[in-house]
Amino acid sequence: MKDQHSVISDGIRVSGTIEAAEDLLIRGRVDGDISSSQTVLIDVSGIVKGTLRAQTVIVRGVMVGDVHTKTITQLANEGRMVGNIYSPQVVLDEGAAFRGRIDMGEKVGEESPSRDERNNRFGSSGRGSSNREKQASPWGAPSPSKPAEREPAADTKESTVVAIKEDAPAEAEAREKKKAKS
């Protein structure tokens, strides 16, 4: 969580919708939908009933309803949740209670984004609602490997061959000429 964030404290109840462009810490109760372009943290005393869309969601309290995130959903060890999680990365800590489906979408089988990529995305000001596109084919088959991935592999093979035949100067010369032409 950044220093600048909104707080719904223990003892406060919000019945209605919340839209957030900054981090939100929930220690009270929210009955309704939340849409955030940043992080939503439901703390130990926090209760949310509704649909939650955000960049990142961390649940230490109680969440009842579906969670949609663009990066990661974490259910911490005291967290309890009933509902479905739609998120490219999901972490369920030991001790967390969960009932529902997990859908990591088309990302299944692919490498998870590096920390740098994640941080870059975190900085974007996209609205939570735009991740609807990703849900169009929840269990879509992993995309076939692109031809672009094969080309670099062929290059490495060629360079090994060059290394082996390096003591044949004539051939190396021919190769260099070829390179110069192209």
Partner: peptide, 27 residues
């Protein structure tokens, strides 16, 4: 007791009720 802080990036549409102070910089 920690108060509720509605920051400049937050919009609440509905009913807010309960105990504790609320500071509003948002909507």
């Amino acid at each position: 007791m920690e108060h509720t802080y509605v920051g400049p990036g937050l919009m609440i549409d509905g009913e807010v009720s309960g105990r504790g102070d609320i500071q509003v910089l948002g909507l």
